[in-house]
């Protein structure tokens, strides 16, 4: 199983991950190897097997509906690369 350059480019768009032209050949080759590895799964018969999403058979615990958090936006925004008027700034969002 090997991937094409177009496959990788499509994945890069979905994952919003730039791969430079220099990196491309390496990424393509190694990803193809990895896909080859995981393709071994196909041969296993899993008819009637329930997929396992969690390692333990537990159910969701719920939180009571209470406000437990206070405003700390100034502390949190210290990590933000670009903030103005308490808003996080990003390149223009077009709708």
């Amino acid at each position: 199983m090997s991937l094409t350059r177009e496959d990788v480019q499509k994945l890069c768009v979905l994952a919003r991950l730039e791969i430079t032209p220099d990196e491309m050949a390496d990424v393509l080759a190694k990803l193809s190897d990895i896909v080859g590895l995981v393709s071994q799964l196909e041969a296993e018969d899993t008819t009637d097997v329930v997929p396992m999403a969690h390692p333990l058979d537990q159910t969701q615990k719920l939180r009571s509906d209470q406000i437990t958090e206070t405003d700390e936006h100034q502390l949190y925004q210290k990590n933000a690369p670009l903030v103005e008027k308490d808003l996080y700034l990003v390149p223009k969002v077009i709708e």
Binding site: D7, V13, L14, L17, E18, V27, L31
Partner: peptide
Amino acid sequence: YMQTRGEGFGAEVKRRILTGTY
């Protein structure tokens, strides 16, 4: 998005993200 993530992550992390996306 593309450049921030392209610059911020190293090669192995990128491979795993792309594998996972796939």
